[in-house]
Simulated scan of single mutants.
Amino acid sequence: MANLLVRGIDDALVQSLREQAAAHGRSAEAEHREILAHALRRPRKRSFAEVLMSMPDVGEDADFERVNDSGEAARVFG
């Protein structure tokens, strides 16, 4: 495993890291690893079904029915 050395960290930030580590029952180094892992972890790709299920349930089916038209494209530019 690689080592990472970070210099020039504000004392208040280091103190906050130590306090957060203590609250989680681990060392400052372990807390730092966890913070980095959480910040840099790539989000899990969602399946197509998950994306569809996350869409809000709005409107009625009738809102999405086709409108009867002549079948010709509308003249948009002239």
Rank of each mutant, 00 (worst) to 15 (best):
S47C: 02
M1C: 08
R44E: 12
E34T: 14
A37I: 06
H32N: 05
L36N: 02
M55Q: 04
G25N: 04
P56C: 05
F64E: 01
I35Y: 07
V14I: 11
V76S: 11
P43R: 12
A49F: 05
H24D: 15
H32E: 03
A22L: 08
G78Q: 13
R26E: 08
A23W: 06
Q15F: 09
H38S: 14
D61M: 01
L13H: 06
G25H: 07
R26C: 11
D11W: 03
G8C: 03
G59I: 00
D61E: 04
S16M: 09
E34S: 14
A30K: 13
P43H: 03
H32I: 02
K45M: 06
D10Q: 13
R41F: 00
R33N: 11
Q20A: 05
D61C: 01
D63V: 01
I35P: 02
I9K: 02
G25D: 09
M55F: 10
L5F: 09
E65M: 14
R46S: 04
D57T: 06
H32Y: 10
R26S: 04
V58W: 00
A28C: 05
A74T: 15
G8A: 01
D69S: 13
V76P: 01
A2Q: 12
E34Y: 10
N3C: 03
A22E: 15
D10P: 03
D63P: 00
V58G: 01
L5Y: 10
A30V: 10
S47D: 02
S16R: 13
S47L: 05
V58I: 09
I9N: 00
F48V: 03
R42W: 01
L4T: 11
V6H: 01
N68Q: 14
A73M: 06
A62H: 04
V14K: 12
F64L: 06
H24C: 02
N68H: 08
R7D: 12
E72M: 10
S70V: 11
Q15R: 11
H38T: 14
L5M: 05
